[in-house]
Design a protein around this nucleic acid. Structure first.
Lengths: 120, 120
DNA sequence: CAGAATCCTGAAGGATACTG
DNA sequence: CAGTATCCTTCAGGATTCTG
């Protein structure tokens, strides 16, 4: 084994997995990336921007992210209600890591697509 | 909108999503991280290391990663068969991005766990 | 040993309707 | 507008069995 900072012992109930699984869902990563670009967005703005999220899943996703402390939720007590979402400091600290992943995907999507079509 | 290298147009059928979804599954990321640490591993070694993957899912995961060109598969024609898996150059280029995510998760898992217990 | 094939379950996620 | 509440469908993934 090469020297490595990663500990794979108890790899299954790994605490790191509990964190990373949160971004393994369908929408969390996308929401973070978009909030990272637009600073502050309302619920409907987010939904329109993503285009295909159901209201339910956007609500669930935002609630999870808020619970983890990655996204903050600001409610304006008015009628009709206005709620603004943005990244917290914690969310902002994650942002560059995700952007780095996206960048990698962009740089390599052509080769990967070719690989896929080659092997069926 | 801040200046940003990420294009969210057609965010749903986004080609980047087609790539990233590959790592959103349960085992791909873990396999890549482990192969990144151990260079070369046989099927059973990988399975024992992860501990809780079913044979089926490890096989499926490895086949996907091989199809994408992230993992290479070397077969030794002998009985009983011996198959070794390792990262390709492409897989190695992804490795640091994933390790960076793991590092972030490690650094912030305490605070996130606290946030979760606070908000229930 | 390294898998392929089959069956089965739970949970993620969508559609729709309703509400403060 | 910003959700919640239900119902329903799909499919990722586990358990098991079989094979070259």
């Amino acid at each position: 084994m090469k020297e490595n900072q990663i500990n794979f012992s108890e790899v299954d109930n790994c605490p790191v997995r509990n964190i990373l699984d949160r971004f393994g869902d369908k929408w969390s990563t996308l929401v973070i990336l978009i909030l990272g670009s637009y600073d502050t967005l309302r619920f409907n703005e987010l939904q329109k921007m993503i285009g295909t999220v159901s209201q339910k899943m956007l609500a669930v996703t935002l609630k999870k992210l808020e619970t983890d402390g990655l996204v903050s939720r600001k409610v304006y007590p008015q009628v009709p209600p206005k709620v603004e979402y943005s990244l917290t400091a914690l969310g902002l600290s994650l942002l560059p890591k995700l952007e780095s992943l996206v960048q990698w995907a962009n740089e390599n999507r052509t080769i990967i697509t070719e690989n896929r079509s080659l092997k069926g």
